[in-house]
Design a protein around this nucleic acid. Structure first.
Length: 278
DNA sequence: ATGCAGTCCTGTAAGC
DNA sequence: TGCTTACAGGACTGCA
């Protein structure tokens, strides 16, 4: 499930493969996408050079030379990879962008179709994220903003971390891993945190995301980077998907509970609901 | 404002 | 073996 570290890895992989290359042909497989691909987008992109690749939260931004931006979200099972043009198409490949003479293609594949791809004028990109109210990046987030959003909320920590309007890029896996690192129970209400705990949590989020980026993200089933290489952070999970297994810190059994509609994994000893009495 | 449940989608795995 | 069912979840909508 691509979250910030996976999307960052895709962007880093694709940058040297795409920058400076011309999109010479765009083919839409015809299979219905969650957000229908407009025919005019194909025409619009043809002849444009890739100028820059960036990431905003879990969104991939591909800036093109004539003032358009291709915005892609990988959803649950989205893959954005470069292939040799001669290689047969995999099932569920929705978009094919031929590069230069066609020896290589950028392909967007999405089995469960939770992802999206759209073309927006560069001048409209800022508005795109403003309309969605996408929150700041987790790295170097403004301290007073973070303390305010967190400590004034009655929602539980899991729901807060999954909310892209508060912080962008954290999903189910890294929410659970960050809460474990911070020693905080996912059901603690935001407003129950001390300032010290809140700051520890933001440090834990940064630490976990940074480590995951170093390991090229987590591959559970579908995820691959832009060069089709799998991630390795799944081997370092402390709690995610480890329900019923012993905590790596205290050996007590990891629990699983549905919170904010998502399965949440935590250690009941290392992440107590209430502060221990002194 | 917030917090639910429901929706989209398909491959995989468990259960009978 | 073959069927049914549950599950995975990011973003979004609608309703209490």
């Amino acid at each position: 499930m691509p979250e910030l570290p996976e999307v960052e890895t895709v962007v880093r992989d694709l940058r040297p493969l795409l920058c400076g290359k011309e999109i010479t042909r765009v083919v839409n497989s015809g299979a219905r996408m969650r957000l229908p691909w407009k025919k005019e987008w194909s025409t619009l992109l043809q002849g444009q050079k890739v100028e820059r690749l960036n990431r905003r939260g879990k969104w991939i931004l591909i800036d093109l030379s004539k003032g358009e931006c291709l915005i892609i979200h990988l959803g649950m099972t989205g893959q954005l990879c470069v292939f040799p043009g001669a290689e047969p198409l995999q099932d569920h490949t929705h978009l094919i962008f031929s590069l230069g003479n066609g020896a290589f293609q950028l392909r967007f594949r999405d089995v469960r179709r939770f992802g999206s791809a759209e073309v927006v004028a560069s001048a409209q990109v800022e508005g795109f994220f403003l309309r969605k109210k996408i929150g700041p990046e987790p790295f170097g987030v403004d301290q007073s903003y973070w303390l305010g959003r967190l400590m004034q909320s009655s929602r539980n920590l899991k729901a807060i971390l999954l909310d892209q309007q508060i912080l962008s890029g954290v999903g189910n896996i890294y929410a659970d891993e960050s809460l474990f690192d911070a020693g905080l129970h996912p059901e603690r209400p935001g407003k129950s945190l001390t300032e010290k705990e809140a700051l520890k949590l933001s440090k834990s989020i940064e630490k976990v995301l940074k480590k995951a980026i170093e390991k090229r993200g987590s591959t559970i089933r579908d995820y691959v980077g832009g060069s089709r290489l799998e991630g390795e952070f799944q081997d370092e999970f402390k709690v995610y998907g480890r329900d019923g297994e012993p905590c790596k810190r205290c050996k007590s059994l990891i629990l699983r509970k549905v919170l904010a509609g998502r399965s949440s994994h935590f250690c009941p000893i290392c992440q107590p609901m209430h502060l221990p009495r002194r």
